[in-house]
Design a protein around this nucleic acid. Structure first.
Lengths: 313, 313
DNA sequence: ATCGATCATGCAATATTATTGCACGATCGA
DNA sequence: TCGATCGTGCAATAATATTGCATGATCGAT
């Protein structure tokens, strides 16, 4: 509804080079160059200037982006108002696209989609698995309506006016050990009891690597990084093989067949990762989005409940 | 910047049929049909419904139009802010399009254009002569930036949120008589002194016809409609031929060679027509538009001044 | 009731607009 | 100084919007 070239300009402002912006948007540099040139011409403003090899926004370009955000937000609000006024219509918005990182996509999103479908019988709910950073890009390009992400460093800050972000659930971390490990039968352990273990972490630099190191640091030790795994299942396999211990979020499900035990951690605060929801600013007023957010919180609460019960057995 | 299909929807809302809307916009009905269909689909809303042979907006469609106006207005304001911030740039907005009805286009607009060109040496000022109703259409479709119109019935009301309208000048009406007429040498007459004359009016139903009849009614008589003329020059020719008298606005210039005299009218209020300026809501903040409006008022004042001096001679 | 005029719509053909692919000159880091 | 990376412009191409026309529906007048 509002000129999409402004989104292109925004991406350029983020990445600093036209080539990279084009790559992110799935266009060629030529196309982006032409789009921004025509935008500048239509506006009669100098919005870009060459800075070294790349392009930077002028002051006016930045101002344009700031002000444009107001329009985007307001438009989302209007959409909500319209959707509400159009409740009974046969044409009403019945498409909802949820995106989330792997665990969320596997655990939280399917039950949410199911319940939304019950509440809106003629709705089409789509689930998109994507990395957290990608999720926000999907929101802004209108390819997704709700994002479920882990709160980690490189994400847009909570204060980013383009999004409304809210805490969804605090996903506790469990210690993953082999069944015959000295801690395997404990009902709960504190993290520093595993200080001397060999640790299986994600690759250095990854958000989860940082998360685990931060948790260990808070517990007073530095984990020995014996092995690196990207996927929970790989980590479980390594633990199962007796190569070390790992931290795994409660929501992450593991396949059967690994010789491992999850031991709940205790502590204050309990080591956990924070899971957030994100929507486009202003869009939370749209009935189906509002409903889905509510349901998402219920699902998250009930999953957390179920897991608490399970771990108490 | 904001989806142009909303303007199409607005025109449809005004005229009630898709065919007429298409005609006004210079498109074929097919094109408009497809545009509105795609708009409705993109929005997921039912914005139109068949009403008899034509189309009418649903409640949601009307709401959409109302809310969209807010975006249009805000965008114009932002443009102003941006233009101000970009004052020194080589790319800055230097195009200004003025539109007005014939007298304005001939009398007020040229000196305004000239002065704007002096103030903004690299500007391109365009003058468009158009009927008052057409002027507002030009504003809304971004084909003109400032409209100068006569305040008459079928125009958008001053309260129309799409425009900001302001009084520019009150254009006094003079009595036009043949040189040998009994009133020709008077320095001023009151309108009812000409109550018994044969009158040359515009065609019944036209705004100027109504204006003159209203002025006469206020003076306490009904003019005998002896002849009808559309153009000032025709009226002058008829007066010159001794066929009657007419009212002619002070700003309207007449060619040499007619055997006529202008006699100023007195009265309270003095019979006159009101001339207004109109701009798109929010756009008055753009530097070149703001400057042009100021200049337009100066020009109008000085023209009124000059005419007052001339008639006092 | 019936007929002709007016209307919105859909489809294939066409015109318009956006995008690509590639060559060029500029800038930066080694 | 060289090689890599970058933005730009142009012609070719892909995508999109618009037209022209045929169809079925609605309305007013006979």
């Amino acid at each position: 509804m509002i000129d999409q070239r402004l989104q292109v300009l925004r991406v350029l402002a983020e990445v600093g080079t036209l080539t990279e912006a084009a790559h992110r948007l799935g266009y060629t540099p030529s196309a982006v160059s032409h789009q921004l040139r025509s935008l500048s011409k239509d506006l009669g403003l100098t919005i870009l200037e060459q800075r070294g090899r790349g392009l930077a926004l002028t002051r006016v370009g930045q101002l344009l982006l700031e002000r444009a955000q107001e329009l985007f937000t307001r438009w989302e609000e209007i959409r909500g108002e319209l959707a509400e006024a159009d409740a009974g219509s046969p044409m009403r918005q019945r498409r909802l696209r949820l995106c989330g990182f792997s665990t969320a996509a596997a655990t939280l999103l399917p039950p949410t989609a199911e319940k939304v479908n019950e509440l809106f019988p003629d709705s089409h709910v789509t689930i998109i698995e994507a990395e957290p950073e990608e999720c926000f890009e999907l929101l802004v390009t209108e390819q997704a309506d709700i994002a479920v992400v882990v709160a980690t460093d490189p994400l847009p800050p909570r204060s980013d006016v383009r999004f409304e972000q809210n805490a969804l659930v605090s996903d506790r971390l469990d210690l993953l050990v082999r069944s015959d490990h000295r801690l395997a039968t404990r009902s709960a352990v504190s993290l520093n009891e595993a200080a001397e273990e060999s640790w299986i972490l994600d690759r250095p630099g990854s958000p989860y690597h940082r998360l685990v190191r931060t948790a260990c640091a808070a517990a007073g030790f530095f984990p020995e990084n014996a092995h690196q795994s990207r996927e929970w299942e790989t980590g479980a396999a390594l633990v199962s093989a007796g190569l070390g211990v790992a931290l795994i979020p409660r929501l992450a499900r593991l396949p059967e067949g690994y010789d491992v035990a999850r031991v709940p951690l205790r502590g204050d605060p309990v080591p956990s990762r924070k899971i957030l929801t994100g929507v486009r600013s202003g869009s939370a007023g749209q009935p189906i989005i509002a409903a889905a957010l509510t349901i998402l919180h219920e699902v998250a609460a009930s999953v957390a409940q179920r897991d608490a019960a399970a771990s108490a057995e």
